[in-house]
Amino acid sequence: MSTRIAVIDPDRDRALTIVDGLRAAGDYEIHVLGDETGVAKKLAAIDPDIVLIDLASPNRDTLESLARAASPLDRPVAMFVDQSDDAMIRSAIEAGVSAYVVDGLRPDRIKPVLAAAMARFHSVARLRAELDATKAALAERKIIDRAKGILMKSKGCDEDEAYAMMRKVAMDQNRKLAEIAQAIVTAAEIMG
C-alpha cells in the first residue's frame, strides 16, 4: 500500500511544486489542503500516514494538538522529530517545513518524503529570491534611466556624461548608484 501524505500549505503554487517533487520521489497518495479552518475534520477523512505542513501556516497549532491527544485521527501521531535525527529536524525547520507521522511508520519511509519536501521548499525559496532580485534590478534600471534623462535635460549633457556624473557622486559618497538616481528623481519631482 502506498504511503498517504497530506500537504498543508496556504501557498497553492508551492503545494503543487511539492506534490510534483513527491511524485518524482515515489509512489504516494497525496492530498493537498490550503490554509483553512476545519482542518481536523478533513484530515480525519484523509487519514494520512504523514502530514507535511508549511511553517507559515497558522494551522500548525491545530495540527499539533491533534498530534498530542487522543485525536480524531484515530491513529496516534508523533512529530517526525521523535524518530529522526537532530540535523534533520534543524534543516527541515530552517527550510520552513514540519512533518507529523503516524506512530510506528518506519524511518526509511519518512526520510525520502521529508527530503523531497525540503528540496522543493528550497527550490521554491531560491526561485523567489531570484525573481525578487530580477524585479529589484529592473526597478533600479528604470530609476537610473529616469535620473539620466533628468540630468541630460537640466545639464544639457549627453547620456554617457550623465551616467558618469551619477557614478562619481555615488563613489564619492560611498552609496549605491540607484540611491543617487532615486535622490535625483525625488528632487526633480519636488522641484517640479
Partner: peptide, 15 residues
C-alpha cells in the same frame, strides 16, 4: 511567527 509550535521548535533547535 505564525504559530506557537514554530516558536517552540525554533527555540528548541536554537534558531
Amino acid at each position: 511567527e505564525t504559530s506557537w509550535s514554530n516558536i517552540r521548535d525554533k527555540m528548541a533547535v536554537g534558531l
